[in-house]
Design a protein around this nucleic acid. Sequence first.
DNA 1: CCCTCATTCCCCTTTTTCGGGGATATTTAA
DNA 2: TTAAATATCCCCGAAAAAGGGGAATGAGGG
Lengths: 216, 216
Amino acid sequence: MNMSGEPSALSRKVLIVEDHPIVSDSLFRLINETFDDTICIHAATGAKGLSYLNGNRFDIVLLDINLPDMTGIEFASQARSRFPGIRILVVTSMAQRHIIELAVKAGVMGFVLKTSDVKDITEGIRQVAEGNSYFGQGVKELMTGHSVSGTSEPLITRRESEILKLISEGHTNQEIAEKLFISSSTVDSHRKNLLIKFNAKNTAALIKTAISRGII
Amino acid sequence: MNMSGEPSALSRKVLIVEDHPIVSDSLFRLINETFDDTICIHAATGAKGLSYLNGNRFDIVLLDINLPDMTGIEFASQARSRFPGIRILVVTSMAQRHIIELAVKAGVMGFVLKTSDVKDITEGIRQVAEGNSYFGQGVKELMTGHSVSGTSEPLITRRESEILKLISEGHTNQEIAEKLFISSSTVDSHRKNLLIKFNAKNTAALIKTAISRGII
DNA sequence: CCCTCATTCCCCTTTTTCGGGGATATTTAA
DNA sequence: TTAAATATCCCCGAAAAAGGGGAATGAGGG
């Protein structure tokens, strides 16, 4: 579908969405040293990045996960829904499995870590620029590290996650029951199931693992 | 004491302790473009950084806070205790008040954020290299934002954070008491203080806010 | 149609936490 | 050196959570 626009081996437009000037500078130089005829635009926030995408056609986006105004995941979702052909390479220090999964789900084509050496990052840019997917040093291992249940987290149900959120906000079973117009016994049941599903001994461990898995 | 070795306006030795090659690359170039006659050594871990310090005399250290094997705070403490004259500039993305305070307490001379533009960072390097202290864009505001009583950072004691960690791992007061060879009443006291300091209604809220503030 | 699973609800007991005091050392900072 | 903060310990009772059962409904999929 997006194959209508020619990839044009020379002359690429790259958007760098990254809030650390010291990193975007590095990416900028990296790209100019590696590729000919490249135009780089830098956006320090997700909002600015999206507005740049609105005005111009970009070949690829280099995207950080920690942005001041949104997460890279949100940026990727919005960018991909508005511009389905856009190719996104995540360049981040977040070496967490669920983040990679969320990013892939949001439609990114590649994922490299800032702890990787620069060759790995340029290779990622090259591959994604050519329409391939690329997962850099350490990323593939994180992904293949035994998937819990297929594509992971339909582990908990809608209701359970709703209750989990309320628990994390400090509400008791009674309060949650009133909020959701159900019995506190029911909340208790859900709570027990959450403990089992997360293999948590108590509320403290439940909240901690839930957050570490990005569910809260 | 360390004034025996002349500062030598030309020829500086800089140690970069930073686990992101893309960042250390940028720092490296920044230094070479800004100063003449500079030697840069790069260490990707705290341990390597300390061993470099052991072998050679460095003028200044550029230090990240998130290192794979230790925190930048720990690195600074050890470096300053072994080499009291060493001048350290923290270059990090951690824009949190308590981190700055800890770093200063550990003896760093300057603190700049990666979200700052490169001029701010080079200015920090310049000032610290000349023996001055320097706190970059956004850092001073974080420090002066009314200290102890205010809205944010609950000043947590060593013991409290130790107990907080054990709570988050799912241990009960009794278990924590046994682990730390104290009474469970004591653990309970600490726990109550944690709830007050974090303004948390119960354990769930405590863990959530503690994690969101980067304490766990 | 049957089976699974989410959701809802209830019983019981035991353990743990929470809220409210108070007390005494020891360390740290002013 | 004195005051403040920290760490240690204790009491009580009420509230909440945890552990163990069981059970009825209803939606959705094979």
